[in-house]
Design a protein around this nucleic acid. Structure first.
Lengths: 175, 175
DNA sequence: TTTATTTCTTAATCTAGATTAATAGTATGG
DNA sequence: CCATACTATTAATCTAGATTAAGAAATAAA
């Protein structure tokens, strides 16, 4: 993913920031234009429903970008919180940057590839949520992101999978 | 979405094709580089799981593009079938086109916006699948795509929502 | 180290939605 | 037009995963 760093390197306004575990980078309900590039550490984006339950949308470890594109694109208040799971460093920058005049054609092209890649992953996630059992989704998760489970509490895996911690505990007992 | 047509207009190899209801445009299991732009009619993409159950990933009506980006980006065999729900016309073209040398910087920029938009919609879909009941998802669907329900059988709505036709029938009875 | 807080597990009960099955309504093609 | 195949509805039963509750482990804080 160094193509991403290249893209960012042109951004004069982007600043590296030290982050602490549990620090909140973005709250639900605002209209956000910000994206967070993770240099070091681990962050997550999640929504909280009417019943107060957390649903993790995605994790971002080293080299990843987290942003609430839905809020940005449709100009709606964010559905997502973004906060830090580990101490680390992030680069925070404006999403508008991706379409700015400054970007060369090669950078735009690389950026398109990254976007397409993310669509591919989301396609997979949607199909999985519709067609696989919780146990299957768990197995796929630990295969797809083998480095993540060690760094987060069980209950966050459950939240990402769309099940309760109790259900995950039962599944793990079965394996 | 005329920006999309603009992008396509440069593609000399793209050809408009007449399609018939039930015609299959793409089968599961191949590595696909194709995208389908809908000029007229209605198509859908869907996967079939081990139990033989269909799961509709998305519908494409006039002006939309349907493609299996996961297959394309990660070079995996497709998980998706694509077929026609109504007679109509499509333009079939290669996905490589989106990153080709022919594209001007403005076209690339417009293309990025379209990709970002799709990520936004998918984000919404994932969060919904994790946090909303079937009844809520049904209500949101008919609000978000009011023109689609009239054109498709009930069981396809159920398939898109991730529930059985029987469950949808019960929900509709309650409203 | 001791205490407080958060996380994980186990078990009993409950429920949304799945499955199965039977019936009736609706298209569709010959 | 009829016959065959889809499509929708209703009802009985079943099950994956939710909810509730309580105790054990692990972390963090003091």
């Amino acid at each position: 993913m160094d193509s991403l760093l290249e893209i960012l390197s042109v951004d004069t306004e982007a600043v590296t920031k030290t982050i602490k575990k549990k620090e909140i980078l973005q709250k639900q309900g605002i209209v956000s234009k910000n994206a967070f590039y993770v240099k070091k550490g681990l962050i997550r984006s999640y929504s909280i429903d009417e019943k107060g339950k957390e649903h993790i949308f995605m994790f971002g470890s080293e080299g990843w970008i987290i942003a609430d594109l839905e809020s940005n694109v449709f100009n709606r208040p964010t559905e997502l919180y973004i906060d830090c799971i580990e101490d680390g460093e992030i680069v925070s920058f404006s999403l508008e940057y991706f379409n700015s005049e400054n970007l060369s054609i090669e950078k735009l092209r690389k950026n398109s590839k990254l976007l397409t890649r993310r669509i591919g992953s989301l396609q997979r996630r949607v199909i999985q949520l519709m067609s696989s059992s919780a146990k299957e989704r768990y197995k796929i998760f630990i295969e797809t992101y083998p480095h993540i489970p060690k760094r987060i509490p069980q209950k966050m895996i459950a939240s990402y999978l769309g099940i309760t911690p109790e259900a995950l505990s039962k599944i793990r007992g079965q394996l």
